[in-house]
Nucleic acid binder design. Structure first.
Lengths: 336, 336
DNA sequence: CTGTTAGCGCCTTCAA
DNA sequence: TTGAAGGCGCTAACAG
C-alpha cells in the first residue's frame, strides 16, 4: 500500500503538495506540470488515502450507522437500500446493526457510538424497551436521526402514516365493507398512533361507527400478525375486512385466517402496508398501500449528514414524494 | 471526548502508563495503587480509546465487511446474524454491503477494500458477473473468505450441500414420488453443482432414471423461482413433486403452481431449502431442509479472523454441525 | 508556487 | 516502576 510520501517522492515534491492537489484545495495554485507529475505518480502507484489517518486528522469516521430491528424483515429492505445509496453518494460507508442485539450486549454498541467508529446514527425504532436504551445512548453521544417514526425532541424522518392508513381503510370501504377490523403496530410509536388516526378518520367520514370494535395489535412480524388475527377472531364476531398496518404482519394474518378455515378474500379481505417483495408472491397476493420507504432511507441519511455538518435542520422531515398509493392485488374483494 | 492524555493527567502518570495498564500489557508491572488510580480515572472520565487512532497505529480497521446479494432476502438473514455475533465477539464491527450495488458503482467498494476501511471481507456469491468482479478485486486487496460456496484457490466456508439436496429428494421418494423435478440455483456456483449431485444420487439410489427430465434453474429469488416453475410446466408433462434448492425461490414456485391451477401439495409437492421466517407462514407452509446458516456465518468470520492474524487455514471449511435436517410442513404429501 | 512543521490519539521501544 | 520520544498517514498553518 503506497502512502502519500511515496507519491511525493515519486513526483519529487513534498507530501503536503500532494495532499493539496489530490484534495483539490481551492486556495492553492500549482504549476500545471507539477500537478501533472503528482497526478501521474498517484495513479501509477495506485495511491488511495488511508482511511484511518484521515479519520484521525478530521475527527470524522467516514461511516454512519443504521440500527434496525430484525435486519431480515423484508419491509426494512427498501429503507436500507435507500440509506445505502445516500451514504455512498457522500463517499461514506454504511454500518448496519441490530437494535435488539445491541440491547442484549451493549458493549459493541457503546464502542460504536463513543469511539468514533461512526459519525452519526440512523435509527428505526419499533417501540420496545430496546429502543429507549438505544435512543438515549445514541443521542447523548452522536447526531441521531429517527426514521419511520417521530418523537418530540428528536430529529425524525417520517412517512405520511395517517394518509396511508386512511387510503387503506377507504379502499375497503369503497369495496363495500362496513365491518372493518384493524391490526395496529405494537409498541409505543408515534406511527402506530398516526396510522390508527388515519384509519379512524376514514371510518368516521364514511359514517361507520367504529366503537373500537375490531382493534388489535398486529405488530410487524409474521408471528405477531398471526396472533393478532387470532385474537380478533376470538371475539366471537368477525369483520369482513382487516387493515393490517404492516405487510409482514399481514402475511401472518393471512396465515391465521387460513388456519381458521377462512378464505381470503372471499370470507375476509386483508390489506397490508409496504410493497415488500413477498406481497406479490404469497397466495393470495397481498393488496397493499405502497409507501416511499426507499426515499425515506435517502432522506434520513441526508438529514443526518446535514446534522453532522452542523446545519440547522427542521425537527421532523416528512417524505411527501412519492405519496402513499394503493397497490391492489388479490387479497381484497367486495364482501359477499 | 476524553483522550488518553486526560486520563494520564488525572491519574498523575504519563499517558504511556495508561496505555499499558488499559491494554493489559503482560510485560509490564505496576504498583497496585498506580493501577488503581489509572483505572479509576479512566472510568470517571469515561475514557474510550479513539478508534481511528488505534486503527492508524495498528494498521487495522477493526471492521470487517460482509458482501451479499440482496440484503433483504430472508435466507441470508441467518448468515448475517451469525456473522454479526462472531464479529462482535472479536470486538470488531460489521459492515454490510450489497454486491450488485458494488458492481454498479465500484467507487465505494474500491475505497472500502483498498483504504483500510475493513480488515477483511466475507463474501456470499450468487454466481453472476458481479461476483467475479468483487472476488477478484477483494482477494487482490484483502483477506477474503467465501461463504456458502467454494471456489478452488479461495478460502471458503460451505454447508453440506450435497447431503442436503439428497435429503430433500429422499423425502419426496419416501412419500412415494417417482416423477421428481428440480429447480436448481442459477449462476455458476459450486453449491449449485453440489446440490444437483446430491439430488441425482438420491434418484439413482432409488432406481429412478432422471434422464434430466424435469431440471430447470430456479435461482434464489421469488421471481426466478416462479419463472423456473413455469418453464418446468411448459414442457407438457409435469412431475408430481419438485425440489427447489432455495426457500425464497420455492415460495415463487408455489405461486407459479397456483397460477397454473395446481394445488400444493395435492397436485404437486414442493420442498425448499433453508428454514427462513416465511417458510412456516405461507399457505401451504413450506417443507424445507434446514441448513446451518447461522453457524456458517459464524465460521466464516472466525476463518477470516484467522486469516487476518496470518494463521494457516485450510482452504475449505465445512460446517458439519448441525447437519442438514428435514423440517416437514404442509407443502409435501404423497402423490395421489 | 512549494516546502517545513506541527499535531490528530495511540502504542511501543528505549532510557532512566 | 515510570517517563520521554518517535512515528503510524494525513492535513493545515505558516514560511519561504
Amino acid at each position: 500500500m503506497s502512502t502519500i510520501k511515496d507519491v511525493a517522492r515519486e513526483a519529487r515534491v513534498s507530501h503536503a503538495v500532494v495532499s493539496r492537489i489530490l484534495n483539490k484545495d481551492p486556495t492553492f495554485t500549482v504549476r500545471p506540470e507539477t500537478r501533472e507529475r503528482v497526478l501521474e505518480a498517484a495513479a501509477r502507484l495506485r495511491y488511495i488515502p488511508n482511511h484511518a489517518a484521515r479519520a484521525l486528522r478530521h475527527n470524522r469516521a467516514g461511516a454512519i450507522g443504521l440500527a434496525v430491528h430484525e435486519i431480515g424483515n423484508p419491509v426494512y429492505n427498501a429503507i436500507i437500500e435507500g440509506a445505502q445509496k445516500a451514504v455512498a453518494s457522500h463517499g461514506a460507508v454504511l454500518m448496519l446493526a441490530d437494535v435488539d442485539e445491541f440491547h442484549r450486549d451493549p458493549t459493541t454498541f457503546n464502542r460504536m457510538i463513543t469511539s468514533k467508529v461512526i459519525d452519526g446514527l440512523v435509527f428505526l425504532p419499533a417501540g420496545n424497551e430496546a429502543d429507549d436504551f438505544v435512543l438515549r445512548a445514541a443521542t447523548a453521544a452522536l447526531p441521531t436521526v429517527l426514521v419511520n417514526d417521530r418523537t418530540p425532541g428528536f430529529h425524525s424522518v417520517t412517512l405520511e402514516d395517517s394518509d396511508a392508513a386512511k387510503i387503506a381503510a377507504e379502499h375497503l370501504i369503497q369495496l363495500g365493507h362496513r365491518d372493518i377490523g384493524v391490526l395496529l403496530l405494537d409498541g409505543e410509536t408515534q406511527r402506530r398512533l398516526d396510522r390508527f388516526a388515519g384509519h379512524e378518520s376514514a371510518l368516521q367520514e364514511a359514517g361507520i361507527e367504529s366503537g373500537h370494535a375490531w382493534v388489535e395489535n398486529g405488530g410487524h412480524t409474521l408471528d405477531s400478525g398471526r396472533k393478532g388475527m387470532l385474537r380478533l377472531a376470538s371475539r366471537g364476531s368477525l369483520p369482513t375486512a382487516v387493515s393490517v398496518h404492516n405487510a409482514t404482519a399481514a402475511v401472518g394474518a393471512m396465515r391465521a385466517a387460513m388456519e381458521l378455515g377462512l378464505h381470503v378474500p372471499e370470507d375476509i379481505s386483508i390489506i397490508g402496508f409496504h410493497d415488500m417483495s413477498f406481497a406479490g408472491f404469497v397466495t393470495p397476493s397481498l393488496t397493499v398501500v405502497k409507501l416511499a420507504l426507499e426515499e425515506m432511507g435517502v432522506q434520513a441519511v441526508e438529514t443526518l449528514f446535514r446534522l453532522i455538518a452542523g446545519e440547522d435542520v427542521e425537527e421532523t422531515v416528512r417524505v411527501l414524494d412519492p405519496m402513499p398509493k394503493l397497490e391492489m392485488r388479490e387479497s381484497t374483494a367486495p364482501p359477499r
